[in-house]
Simulated assay, not measured.
Amino acid sequence: MTSTSTPSLLPGTSRTLAASVRGLSKTYGDGDTAVHALRSVDLDLAPGRFTAVMGPSGSGKSTLMHCMAGLDRPTEGSVTIAGVDLTTLDDDRLTHFRRDHLGFVFQAFNLLPMLTARQNILLPFELTGRRMEDGTAERIEQVIDVLGLRDRLDHRPGELSGGQQQRVAIARALAADADVVFADEPTGNLDSTASAEVLAFLRRSVAEFGHTVVMVTHEMDAAAYADDVVVLADGGIREHLVAPSRARVAQALEGGAR
Rank of each mutant, 00 (worst) to 15 (best):
N110T: 01
G158S: 05
L160C: 07
N189P: 10
F125C: 02
A137N: 12
L112C: 13
G129Q: 04
M114V: 13
C67N: 08
Q119K: 12
N120V: 06
L64Y: 08
D154C: 00
I121Y: 04
R130W: 11
P74E: 06
D85K: 06
R99V: 12
A137L: 14
L115Y: 13
L199F: 01
F109C: 13
I140H: 05
I81N: 09
I121M: 05
A196I: 02
L160I: 07
Q119M: 05
L112G: 06
E185V: 01
D134F: 03
N120T: 09
I144P: 07
V105K: 10
T136R: 15
T63R: 05
R203M: 01
G135I: 01
G135P: 11
A82V: 11
L94G: 05
L71C: 02
D72Q: 11
V198P: 03
A171L: 04
F109K: 10
V146G: 02
D90W: 14
G103R: 08
D177I: 00
V84H: 13
A175D: 01
F104I: 11
L94T: 13
A183H: 04
P113W: 11
L202F: 02
D90G: 14
P157Y: 07
A82N: 10
L127V: 12
L86F: 10
N110K: 08
F125K: 10
T63I: 00
M65A: 09
F125E: 14
R99T: 12
T95P: 04
S161W: 05
E138S: 12
Q165G: 10
E197N: 00
Q142S: 03
D91L: 07
D85H: 07
A171T: 10
S192V: 02
T88A: 15
S78E: 15
C67M: 02
E138M: 04
A194V: 08
V146E: 10
Q119C: 01
D91I: 09
S192N: 05
F109G: 11
G163A: 03
L122T: 13
F106D: 10
V180H: 10
A171P: 03
A200L: 02
A194Q: 06
S192Y: 01
R156G: 09
D92S: 14
G188A: 09
A69V: 02
L102N: 12
F97V: 11
F97C: 14
L89P: 04
L199S: 09
A183W: 01
D92C: 08
F106Q: 08
T88E: 14
T75Y: 03
G148V: 01
A108G: 13
T136W: 00
D92I: 12
D72C: 11
A171G: 09
D92M: 12
F182K: 00
Q164K: 03
A196Q: 00
T116N: 11
L190H: 03
S59F: 06
I121K: 05
